[in-house]
Amino acid sequence: MSNYLKVSLSPHIHSKDDTGKLMKGVIIALIPALIASVYYFGLGAIIVTLTSVAACVVFEYAIQKYLLKGPVTITDGSAVVTGLLLAFNVPSNLPVLIIILGALVSIGIGKMSFGGLGNNPFNPALVGRVFLLISFPVQMTTWPVPSGFKTGYADAVTGATPLGIIKEGLRNGETIPQLMNQVPDHMQLFYGYMGGSMGEVAAAALILGLIYMLFRKIITWHIPVSIIVTIAIFTGILWLINPSQYADPLFHLLTGGVMLGAIFMATDYVTSPMVPKAMLIYGAGIGILTVVIRIFGAYPEGVSFAILIMNAFVPLMNAYIKPGRFGKEVKNG
């Protein structure tokens, strides 16, 4: 057969970028944040990450091979990304079994039950995270306090997240200027010196990842920028109205996983809109919902919920928001 010429429809060349390479790009972009969390939370971060990634890959393999009896596609790296993101969204001292359960929910319910890669309406890592948050509220909100690299795992020194401190304090009648003394200052927040989920703390490292992904053209700027701008504007207005009740915009941006959510969670290919216009609306929706949940809701932080809620609107946006068609309007100039 090899003597014959091959015939196929054009185009006959390909850009050489494939799904696996894009996923590897995302993984590379996550590395700075991973290093940061290992620096802050020590061995726990490594254990959580390894467990989560391994569990996700194993579950995907097992489901594809034994349950669906179809081709196994773990080599495309999407399960690794889900595993990493799940790990980034939990505290670094979370017991291993709980992580494995989270991975099972992420991959089994969040992804494979909808038909695997490309078909899941909700971000799998967030499905896992929210499941754990509701099922194990104590473990999921016991945040280790960053204290440089250490070898202990389930560390005894725990504390609340900055947003938790603010929420609690406001409830007790304290004002923002008073509370600001109890939380790390903005520079510390930027570098990630605070309690929180292991991957969400280091804004600087996450932004490094964003720059890499934009440079490699893995994602476009639309979603992260619209989320960040919306949150900044919304909290900024509230802050200008009453600085004693509402924290400043920069504080909101640097805490509670806004950076992780805006850069890595909301930009997940499968669960974000296809058209730039829709991406901006999606981002704005996430921003508004996040602030509403944070300030008026029961939970101190709301990025995960906001993203999941907006995920649900993505099919609707894809159906009704169309790209700017060429030749739509007659322009003569």
Binding site: D18, L22, T73, G116, L117, G118, S272
Partner: peptide, 13 residues
């Protein structure tokens, strides 16, 4: 000019 086996759409847009 190889045409590889194609995978599912990951909706990368």
């Amino acid at each position: 000019t190889e045409r590889k086996q194609y995978g599912p759409c990951i909706r990368c847009s």
